[in-house]
Design a protein around this nucleic acid. Structure first.
Lengths: 188, 188
DNA sequence: TTATCTTCTTGATAAATGTCAAGGGCGTTG
DNA sequence: CAACGCCCTTGACATTTATCAAGAAGATAA
């Protein structure tokens, strides 16, 4: 999964600017189980997942809740923490060994003066994140747990042999037992 | 509910610029039952609700699904349609007679050259929309229907005597019957 | 006013999902 | 190898939620 291709798609900038931007992403590795973003930290980077899988989760009084799972080709961060320098609502942990390309906030902030079209690109990026969540809310209010599973499975087959099903269950808003039963019922 | 106060809060611009922006919002009225945004249209305006209540919904094969309900002091539009000129995923209908202040896209697009800080403000606005949805997803995966109801009731008491409960049920992802039973159980 | 429509509630029942507990598979570690 | 931990599955049962049907309350229109 090439970062320039992804940057092109997400930010919709001309190739020359994509190439320029991509130089600010620095390679990092995160070991399985390590935290990309730990409890109470601020997100100081936006990272492209070159390989590996991460989960974004929060701790409630009674349980851990996995908000979403990101794999190769996705960008990962706590968006509001990264954009506004709030302390993060989420923790982010690597579920496998991972290679990422990280854009630190200090560099990110220079893009505005560096690239004439950066504001439009950034807007597009944030709006796309918005649209993804909009679809997710719609799924929760319009689909059954089984339908949500089937859709998730279609779109994220790659996760199913690499991430504990309990985390996928949490993303779908159901218990691990229910996910197990849905899977034995529908096959796959 | 004053639009300048809301603009200030949402876009976080200095008072002088808020005043300048607010001049581009034009007054409109929408009668009860009329559509602010009908099936298949594009959202060509971002509107501030001065009074009245709207619902944002979509039609699936089997049912109508209400995505959210907005009242006085909120902004309303299909964000992705408005920003990118896509055809809208949502229909928006007035549930009561309403007065709105509408910013049309043609004016909106001039802000970028008009106001030096517009890009930052716009980013902030879109990111706030993102954060609202992020919280909503979190509620779906971490709260029970009853807990979601109680929270919604606390935050939107004003709706409960003005909008059909079936729409609120849909926003909460439950049936009208279930909402009715939750209400008789918890009181309120 | 009467009639009609929409909305809400309630009951009976079915289906979906959660909870608790037990056990099995499988990789890791000593 | 044996012991352990983690994860998944399965069963039994409880709870939650949906579905279908009926009827009451309230608004609207004739």
């Amino acid at each position: 999964m090439d970062i320039e291709v992804q940057l092109q798609q997400v930010f919709d900038l001309p190739p020359a600017q994509v190439r320029e931007i991509s130089q600010y992403f620095v390679e990092e590795t995160v070991g399985k189980g390590e935290f990309f973003l730990a409890n109470g930290q601020r997100a100081d980077r936006l990272s492209f997942i070159a390989s590996g899988i991460f989960r974004v989760f929060a701790q409630t009084e009674s349980k851990e809740v996995t908000q979403w799972i990101g794999g190769e080709g996705y960008f990962i961060t706590d968006l509001s923490s990264f954009l506004f320098d709030n302390s993060s609502r989420w923790q982010i942990q690597a579920l496998t060994d991972a290679k990422i390309l990280s854009l630190y906030r200090s560099d990110y902030q220079r893009f505005e003066s560096l690239l004439p079209q950066w504001n439009v690109a950034e807007k597009r990026f944030i709006a796309k994140c918005f649209m993804v969540l909009e679809s997710r809310v719609f799924d929760f209010i319009s689909l059954s747990a089984e339908e949500r599973y089937l859709q998730y499975f279609e779109q994220h087959k790659a996760f199913f042999n690499q991430v504990p099903l309990q985390f996928i269950a949490s993303v779908l808003g159901i218990t691990p037992e229910t996910l197990s039963r849905i899977r034995s019922k529908v096959g796959g």
